[in-house]
């Protein structure tokens, strides 16, 4: 009887980890695919984090503040990996990947809102980490990441994503 109980207590956490890993992976890859698909629609919108729009043109509407936010959960498996890594130190890739995905999602939402209102450029893009309910400072581990973003939507003269040609490396002298 005791053997069976011990077995159950062992099997439950392992099963939870396994489920979290498999479902978490599926959710992540679906989100990545979704981001790639949405990117095509807003690829023409120019984005900058400098504080003024360099080549504004008068549009139908004056510039507008656009904001977005997202809260992504860090799945149980990634949390477990993060805790393991914490013992030895070093880069915690499982958390970095989730943070990166959350940032891409908020930027995508900003672009989509600007696109919906007919703007073609964003200036003064600001991204920040929101410490909601102490999720960043919880003693146990981080369980979710909340990211806020804000920018000003403009009408710009150039609409391509890369209006300025990338600098060509100068040939070495001699």
């Amino acid at each position: 009887m005791e053997f069976v109980l011990a077995f159950i207590w062992l099997i439950i956490p392992v099963a939870l980890l396994l489920v979290a890993m498999l479902v978490g992976r599926a959710i992540t890859s679906r989100h990545e695919a979704d981001l790639a698909r949405r990117q095509a629609v807003v690829a023409h919108i120019r984005t900058t984090d400098i504080r003024v729009m360099l080549d504004p043109v008068p549009g139908d509407h004056p510039p507008m503040l656009v904001t977005s936010e997202v809260c992504l959960g860090i799945d149980h498996f990634r949390g477990f990996l993060g805790n393991l890594k914490n013992i030895f130190g070093g880069e915690v890739r499982s958390y970095a990947a989730t943070l990166d995905r959350a940032r891409r999602e908020v930027i995508m939402r900003l672009l989509e809102e600007a696109h919906r209102h007919g703007y073609n450029a964003l200036a003064n893009l600001r991204i920040e980490f929101a410490d909601i309910s102490g999720n960043a400072t919880a003693a146990r581990k981080a369980t979710s990441v909340s990211i806020l973003a804000a920018a000003t939507a403009h009408h710009a003269a150039t609409t391509t994503a890369h209006p300025v040609q990338a600098p060509v490396a100068a040939p070495l002298p001699g």
Partner: peptide, 23 residues
């Protein structure tokens, strides 16, 4: 609900909505 969703990761829509409303 967020605690349950957190097991497998993904967006916690309840909290995202909370942020949107607060903002």
């Amino acid at each position: 609900a967020a605690g349950l969703k957190n097991l497998v990761g993904g967006e916690l829509r309840g909290y995202t909505e909370l942020l949107t409303e607060s903002r």
